[in-house]
Write a protein that binds this DNA or RNA. Structure first.
Length: 480
RNA sequence: GCUCCCAUCGUCUAGCCCGGUCUAGGACAUCGCCUUUUCACGGCGGUAACAGGGGUUCGAAUCCCCUUGGGAGUACCA
């Protein structure tokens, strides 16, 4: 039997970092085991679900390169549909079957009655389990007649009073003691089924073999085990991955800042870097390496190397990972991406040769794609002089004004758009011989004169990339 | 409250299942040095952890128990 795994988000918001991580783990496991990765939309909560969010989440997954083999947009007729809201009859049928078998029953209790029962139980120190009259089979007939009259009951599952054991791939052996949960609702009175029920029905019908999901579902799993049993369905393997937490060690949520994938997408983080970092939050590579592409994991990913404890989401390491991926990228690829960045007209207008040369030096020292335009502006196109103390100091050296005068004259004679490295060397020689300047005063003086800065990449790389008219403007200002 | 889960450097983690090879390894961050005209990158090095207490054992980060701390669940949410 081939492996079938699924990611089952609720379209109630943007794709969350934690969701992306779960999706990624499922995707990787499918790839590693030659299986199928399925996207299922859990939209039974009509009030909170929204078709727009479904689309946005799928977009974000696609951006991350987490591609599903089956889903609402790629249906396999054998398993479709993939939206729970479109599977109502299926759940209805299964629920009715459970009622027939006496494993579930209609519950006509009102919200108030339920609330009251719960309060009473808590007051008396009992677990707040359902104890309403409809649990009693003696009321079956009354239930049927009220149903015939058009009343709308919920359907409640009769929770067996016994212990359950789960052999979780991450948590190990988990024992749910008997009486841990009471009878729970599987179909609401409005006819819509509830998560714990449809999840099992779907996983069963879709032949899901491994359920990889967040640890927040671990307690709920006992309910699902009960339903698998009632349905006489094969129980899949479970892997409950630990949660992502914020700096306060609480479950990661909106108040921790940027927790939606689209935020990182908008800031031009590399999707491959995001995946890389997310993978590391709870899973470790057998060779202990920490920079890799998804496809490099297809061979080695497994369920055995998950950490059981929660992981703190930390931007610092993500920043570093992103930088590492930039260094790994081909210049051509970077050029394409940088070209599309906003506010980047200068870069776009340059020759391919120029782009390649600038990318080559800049990629060595940045962490983000957006640093490219920033660096280009800062080092190359900006003709505004920033008078730092260090720069002022350099300008006050007795040799510097001589260098400025000399270069001012030389550069003004220059009329091609760029200065060549060869020409720069000639000038350096001339300054050295004719003006008698060498060492630090030479390099810093020339740097100050040509760049108007006290820092930057090596001059021999930088100057051939800088337009002559920018250099001229800088020299004009310095001359005064 | 009850139930379940978790516990190694500030952070992510290796090691734990199959006790000795661990004076606990790697990575991020941090600090120092080297390289560089400067910054960055890079290289080298440093600081830094087995939550506490009991067992079991010749020997425990590794096995068991308790305590403490953290997390999740306890819905006609997912």
């Amino acid at each position: 039997m081939t492996t079938r795994v699924r990611f089952a988000p609720s379209p109630t918001g943007y794709l969350h970092i934690g969701g992306a991580r779960t999706a990624l783990y499922n995707f990787l496991y499918a790839k590693a085991s030659g299986g199928t990765f399925i996207l299922r939309i859990e939209d039974t909560d009509l009030e909170r679900s929204n078709a727009e969010y479904e689309k946005l989440q799928i977009d974000d997954l696609k951006w991350l390169g987490i591609n599903h083999d089956e889903g609402p947009d790629k249906p396999n007729p054998k398993y479709a549909p993939y939206r729970q809201s479109e599977r109502a009859e299926i759940y209805q049928k299964f629920a009715l079957e459970l009622i027939d078998k006496g494993l579930a029953y209609y519950d006509f209790c009102s919200e108030e009655e339920l609330e009251e029962m719960k309060e009473k139980a808590t007051r008396e120190g009992r677990p707040p389990h359902y104890e309403g009259k409809w649990k009693n089979p003696a009321f079956n007939e009354e239930a049927l007649s009220r149903l015939a009259r058009g009343e709308k009951p919920a359907i409640r599952f009769r929770a067996p009073n016994k212990a359950y054991v789960l052999n979780d791939k991450v948590k190990g052996r988990v024992v749910y003691p008997e009486n841990m949960v009471g009878d729970f609702v599987i179909v609401r009175s409005n006819g819509l089924p509830v998560y714990n029920f449809c999840c099992v029905v779907d996983d069963h019908l879709m032949d899901i073999t491994h359920v990889i999901r967040g640890e927040d579902h671990l307690s709920n799993t006992v309910r699902q085990l009960m339903i698998y049993e009632a349905l006489n369905a094969k129980v899949p393997e479970f892997a409950h991955v630990s949660l992502l937490i914020g700096h306060d060690r609480q479950k990661l949520s909106k108040r921790h800042g940027a927790t939606s994938v689209n935020l990182y997408r908008n800031e031009n983080y590399l999707p491959e870097a995001m995946c890389n970092y997310l993978t590391l939050l709870g899973w470790s590579h057998p060779k202990e390496i920490d920079i890799f592409d998804k496809h490099e994991l297809f061979e080695v990913f497994d369920l055995e190397r998950f950490s059981a404890s929660p992981a703190m989401y930390d931007l610092e390491k993500l920043k570093w990972v992103n930088g590492q991926h930039i260094k790994k990228m081909q210049n051509e690829e970077i050029i394409k991406l940088v070209n599309d960045l906003p506010g980047n007209e200068f870069f776009k207008s340059q020759s391919h040769e120029w782009k390649n040369a600038s990318v080559e030096i800049i990629k060595q020292q940045v962490h983000f794609l957006t640093d490219f335009p920033k660096m280009i502006h800062e080092m190359i196109t900006n003709d505004h002089l920033e008078m730092t103390d260090t720069l002022l100091d350099i300008l006050n050296w007795e040799t510097t004004p001589k260098i400025i005068s000399f270069l001012h004259e030389e550069v003004s004679k220059w009329n091609t758009p760029f200065i060549t490295e060869g020409q720069l060397n000639i000038w350096m020689e001339q300054v050295k011989k004719e003006l008698g300047v060498k060492g630090k005063p030479l390099f810093m003086g020339v740097r100050a004169a040509l760049t108007g800065r006290d820092h930057g990449p090596e001059l021999k790389f930088l100057i051939p990339l800088t337009p002559v008219n920018v250099i001229k403007k800088r020299l004009d200002q310095l001359k005064k």
